[in-house]
Design a protein around this nucleic acid. Structure first.
Lengths: 344, 344
DNA sequence: ACAAATATTGCATTCGAAGTCAAAAATAAC
DNA sequence: GTTATTTTTGACTTCGAATGCAATATTTGT
């Protein structure tokens, strides 16, 4: 296993593959281990002289404090678990990038978990407990008992883009209800009176909010509308489009989609299969403001979620609760911005 | 800070917020801490009777071994660092999802890092050293000295989708050179003889491979071609398209783009700004096989990277090297599949 | 039933950094 | 120059699980 050649010299000064520890640094710098430790703790009491010696020795040995050992004694791992679902429609890379940036500022790192089936959740949570994470950011569904588990263990939990009625749960989101109303309002203003709604999955609270927001505004305007069930995917929107076009009902003047991907699927199908022009023949709106929504082929009218603000809020809420576990739960909801493109 | 009400009873049996430790379980089960530890180590010597007692107590207390403490003594954190760049054009969510699934099978978790500027890399690596990760999967650029650092510390490093000439570096990739040749070959077969190449960024080795592959095949076929510099983005492709269209050179019959996003940008611009039809007036091909490449608006002819296979290879290579650090470096390159769509 | 072989168990130590506390050094005050 | 005060310092313990080793317990063979 070990390369014996290396261990031949009786007292191994710097075992080839052995990461330097605070003791190694202490020995080289001629100080105690405590001194080394203090040099890496901001605000600790160390003289300039000692600090200099320690820093020199650290550089020389390439020493970095072992976060694992530190975490054991401080009971702070500086790791938060981020749980996402397998195929999130959000701007995943952008979101992750912002999350990373924001959390880094707090010296916190991301342990990433992706859950597919709901059954995975149990396993994932077990892993999370093992790693003594300081907190959890969840962009996935939790059962009540799972939320309760977090509470019992005293691990702060903030949901990202999830809707809960229970106000004892912290979450950050976008006002989907209001956003959907804005979209409908825009369409009504443009004179549309017959509309179609392509809904998202039934088991997504976000999708339901969007649907309810749209319906509420549609009713208020006294507009006629039909709802087609979808599931956030391009293909589901394509299918709904075909269903809509082949029904013998009168054609709607505009389609409200549960998200941008569906709006894109709808537009593509309307154009490719029915030769319709958007928005001349039919208007289509989406929701989210993903990168593709800006592409010239679509230039979607949509609700742009303030991604960075939302991530920022998520992180600061989580950090507050990590610092002080008595901070009560909080919900923060940001308004999305109506971005009028050429699709409606 | 602490809820004093909880601490009123003199001897706190189960301090409200204190995670159960192996000692707690041992006490409750009436065995030693060692026994508890062994129950959680597969293949350890424990009698069925003891195991049962321990498991019962564990459930009761909601005990999960502390991975931090375990990592300290075993020198195995079961964490690997995954480094990506801020805006990766790959199928980021899919890739992450596969990575997660594959690594989970080895009981390994992902500590995620996103680097923006090159300067961040230094900081990120420092963080990585602190967390004693077992290995690194990098989908980002490393300097030679950074690679050397990994080697010195004995931390296995596998690059994902990066090209290195140095054969002492492990990496998994797609054959970009060959893929580009396939695309060109396809275009030539369709009778095109004047082509344009929209290249990716100069500092991306992958982009250069694709460019060289295309050029090599173009030369071999004796076709005429112009190269337009791009940077993998939609906007850069849009700009190149305008430049191409407004030059007084004869129009090419096909455009070879460094990736799918650029192909999409090119198609959008050709259609929207110049009213051209794809592929009747101009063929366009991309590279990667991202989700959007399948959208009806584009239906790109492109090279589909075998994402899952690549991720699988990355993980197995990394794990091998974690288990046995003497395994030599290895490069694995997968052939991409030419997917003929309607864009060319 | 008894010795030998095997399987379980617990004790004590280890991993690496952080924090407590009392001793030592540096600084200030007189 | 001496004492009081403040700042630095190092010895020692702690966090929670894993493991070598010796001590028991169990099984096997006869």
């Amino acid at each position: 296993m070990e390369k014996s050649s290396v261990n031949n010299n009786q007292k191994v000064a710097k075992p080839a593959n052995h990461r330097a520890t605070s003791y190694d640094v202490a020995r080289l710098a001629g100080v105690s281990q405590s001194a080394v430790s203090r040099c890496f703790k901001p605000g600790a009491s160390v003289s300039a002289k000692t600090r200099a010696k320690v820093m020199k020795a650290s550089d020389e040995l390439g020493y970095q404090p072992n976060a694992i050992a530190r975490g054991l004694i401080t009971r702070r791992s500086n790791i938060v678990a981020v749980i996402t679902t397998e195929f999130t429609n959000l701007n995943y890379p952008e979101m992750m990038s912002h999350l990373n940036a924001q959390l880094s500022e707090h010296g916190v790192h991301i342990l990433l978990f992706t859950v597919g089936a709901a059954s995975d959740m149990r396993v994932v949570l077990d892993q999370i407990w093992q790693y003594q994470v300081d907190g959890i950011i969840a962009a996935s569904q939790f059962s009540d008992s799972q939320i309760e588990q977090c509470r019992k263990r005293g691990i702060p939990l903030v949901f990202y883009n999830r809707v809960f009625s229970d106000s004892s749960i912290s979450s950050v989101g976008c006002d989907h209800f209001e956003g959907a109303k804005l979209l409908v309002e825009h369409l009504i203003k443009r004179g549309h009176t017959r509309l179609a709604v392509f809904s998202g999955p039934n088991d997504s609270a976000v999708a339901q909010e969007r649907l309810q927001g749209a319906i509420s505004q549609l009713k208020q305007a006294g507009a006629h509308y039909d709802v087609y069930q979808g599931d956030y995917t391009y293909d589901s929107a394509a299918a709904s489009t075909i269903e809509m076009m082949s029904s013998d009902r009168e054609l709607p003047q505009a389609v409200i989609c549960a998200n941008d991907i569906m709006a894109i699927g709808c537009i593509d199908t309307l154009r490719a299969k029915y030769g319709l022009r958007i928005p001349e023949d039919l208007s289509v709106v989406g929701f989210d403001g993903i990168a593709a929504s800006k592409w010239q082929a679509y230039d979607l009218t949509t609700i742009v979620q303030p991604l960075e603000r939302m991530v920022e809020a998520t992180v600061s809420m989580l950090m507050e609760r990590i610092e002080d576990s008595s901070v009560p739960a909080e919900k923060r909801q940001f308004g999305g911005k109506l971005k009028v493109g050429l699709s409606a």
